[in-house]
Design a protein around this nucleic acid. Sequence first.
DNA 1: GCCAACGTTGGC
DNA 2: GCCAACGTTGGC
Length: 136
Amino acid sequence: MNYWLVKSEPYKYSWEQFVKDKVTRWDGVRNYTARNYLKQMLIGDSLFFYHSNEGKHIVGIARVSKEWYLDPTATDGKEWVAIDIVPCKPLKRPVSLSLIKNTPLLKDMDLLKQSRLSVQRITPVAWNCIIKLSEE
DNA sequence: GCCAACGTTGGC
DNA sequence: GCCAACGTTGGC
């Protein structure tokens, strides 16, 4: 079981819309590091859903429902990939970026160190820590 | 609106 | 292969 984080600007695609849709194709990723992570994802892997720009919270948990396939929105001839994800549940309380910043256990997260990366890997320690923060 | 970080492009 | 220029992301 691997843990991941995906980012979305809520005005483009929000958690609320995702819940309504019940399943969505995570496509349009055009960064090689992010693509490699998409290719490593297995069915059942868990993802945090983060709202960037507006909100700046981790708002929910999703799961991989279909492993990588060629991204049909890619038009540049390169091998970009997509996955399908389904919403699992919202966090009881969203975990804000500022709280993450102020939590020593989380200081090495990509969210802080490489904020532009749209698909990130989360360590089990960080995952559990964020779950705890969301329940406090 | 500004700017830092970082990826991509293209000239050499 | 190097590096300057440029574009994008995203926090503030």
